[in-house]
């Protein structure tokens, strides 16, 4: 499988994702510069974390209009796989590829922390191989991760099984206390209605290498390869 990782000025998790895909998953990866127009025939695009354009105006608002993003929007429209992690998730909501918006964390703090995630469904490319009973411990690092959408959008997400991950406690209970950034119904990750665009605030690429003593994020990358290669 050929992955493309998009690099914006201010991206800072691009090399982490590339490392995981190349060295741990053994996949071909190309770096896609935001000013380019050519997706180089990739099968799967990842928008990495970071602070694209310094988070000026709003997180992701300026990156969304980069030349390459117009290609990404077309690619997604034709059913191509696109995944946004952290700042990448913010860019996808700004681009209208995912519903809702990411507001400032409700406690006003930048939060850099390991959190627990409950996988809500196996009905998506990135969650197909995950155990719904076993919470994943994956780090977050963001100031604007408070997922918000109006009541109609939330109902659509719930009715169509588009909520992929929710913040939970160590035992997997969805609680107010575990809702670390104030997200609507603890939402940490979603997909679009056609199930080819994915966004999540936590960083699975930071929990994939054995040297980090936590590989809970690896299952997400394994799910992608297992499903696509099946």
């Amino acid at each position: 499988m050929k992955f493309g990782v998009v690099i914006f000025p201010g991206s800072n998790c691009d090399e982490d994702v590339i490392y995981v895909l190349e060295h741990i998953m053994g996949q071909e990866v190309v770096r896609l510069w935001h000013k380019d127009h050519d997706l180089q025939g990739v099968d799967f695009i990842i928008l990495p974390g970071g602070f694209s354009f310094g988070d000026y105006l709003r997180s992701g608002a300026i990156a969304r209009f980069s030349p390459l993003m117009q290609e990404v929007i077309q690619f997604a429209g034709k059913g191509g796989y696109v995944m946004g992690i952290c700042n990448g998730f913010q860019i996808l909501t700004e681009a209208g590829l995912l519903p809702g918006a990411l507001l400032h964390n409700s406690n006003r703090k930048f939060i850099c922390h390991n959190v627990y995630l409950k996988t809500e469904t196996n009905n998506s490319l990135i969650t197909s191989g995950l155990d719904l009973q076993k919470p994943l411990m994956i780090p977050i690092a963001h100031g604007e991760g408070n997922y918000f959408a109006d009541a109609d959008v939330l109902k659509g997400l719930q009715d169509n099984d588009q909520i992929l991950f929710r913040y939970c406690d160590e035992a997997g209970n969805i609680t107010q206390d575990s809702n670390i950034n104030g997200s609507l119904v603890n939402i940490a990750g979603i997909c679009n209605s056609t199930r080819n665009v994915f966004g999540m605030m936590p960083h699975p690429e930071r929990a994939a290498d054995s040297i980090l003593a936590n590989q809970d994020g690896l299952g997400i990358f394994e799910s992608i390869l297992k499903t696509v290669n099946a």
């Binding site: 105006l57 608002a61 300026i62 209009f65 909501t93 700004e94 918006a101 507001l103 109006d150």
Partner: peptide, 8 residues
């Protein structure tokens, strides 16, 4: 298109 995000 850019200066405001009408969702928020």
């Amino acid at each position: 298109k850019l200066l405001a995000n009408l969702i928020m």
